[in-house]
Amino acid sequence: MIPTAFDYYSPTTVDETIALLQKHGYDAKILAGGQSLLPMMKLRVAMPPILIDINQLDDLRGWREENGYLRIGALTRHADLEQERNLMERYPLLSKTAEWIADVPVRNRGTICGSLVHADPGSDWGAAMIALRADVEVIGPSGVRRVPIDEFFVDTFTTSLEIDEIASAVLIPSPIGRVGARYMKLERKAGDFAIVGVALQVVKANDGTILDAGIGLCACGDVPVRAKKAEEWLIGRSLDKETIQQASLLAQEDANPATDLRGSAEYKRDLVRVFVKRGLEEIADELR
């Protein structure tokens, strides 16, 4: 219940933060919302000697639309994205995903990039960002770079961030067309990590065909997974019963869940099918 001792830094600029990371290397951990890191430190699963609290980095706060993207600052809390009415129409998946994460006090504190950088394959945001085809904005000693979300997750608890880099924002392409989204999740208890989670976003063209479809799967592999075959199948088609049926079957093919206390791999794969089907049916109704 008590973390091991550490040196605490609370830098106020990104440059200062990067310098600290360069200096301390693997000894340092970034503290954002802390809702995964601090519990791990309390259980002494994580014992970083250096903690760099980035909550004073004002540049990492807030969201804005620019250059065809929604830029969400790294320190944006889950609750902000859950409650922000201005985002609900164009980016409905944000609110629909956020409300499934843990519980209110955790959502008040936890941050979107903190969750992505933690790279838990059971992370709801991971699946959602896959569905949204997001990029992660990364800042390091040599400046800013953008990493497509599919390249961001490398392995369980591992991202493509270098040791002296931080994630500063996520960038979500602004949809052109009507958007429908769902986050489907089954939990053992409210606020638990998903048995399986499915993030779905469909962008519909004026002629009723699907302009873009994004499907992210949570707890279906070592990293958040893209249901690529199902996405490809959907694009250019319309959301009728047969199309949805086929998409739900294809989505299973990209899912590679593990058997554990939450259920068998077979069960979880079937949940993927059920959730893709239900989610797309609901979206079809909504966008009709």
């Binding site: 259980l43 519980d103 053992r188 208890k189 409210a190 606020g191 638990d192 206390l261």
Partner: peptide, 27 residues
């Protein structure tokens, strides 16, 4: 919801409230 399972080596598989599930207001 609740069970305290053990693996064959006798490791307790639900030694905290992440895996030993206590019901919330929503459950």
């Amino acid at each position: 919801m609740q069970d305290i399972p053990f693996d064959e080596d006798g490791n307790c598989l639900a030694p905290n409230w992440m895996d030993y599930l206590v019901p919330t207001s929503l459950d």
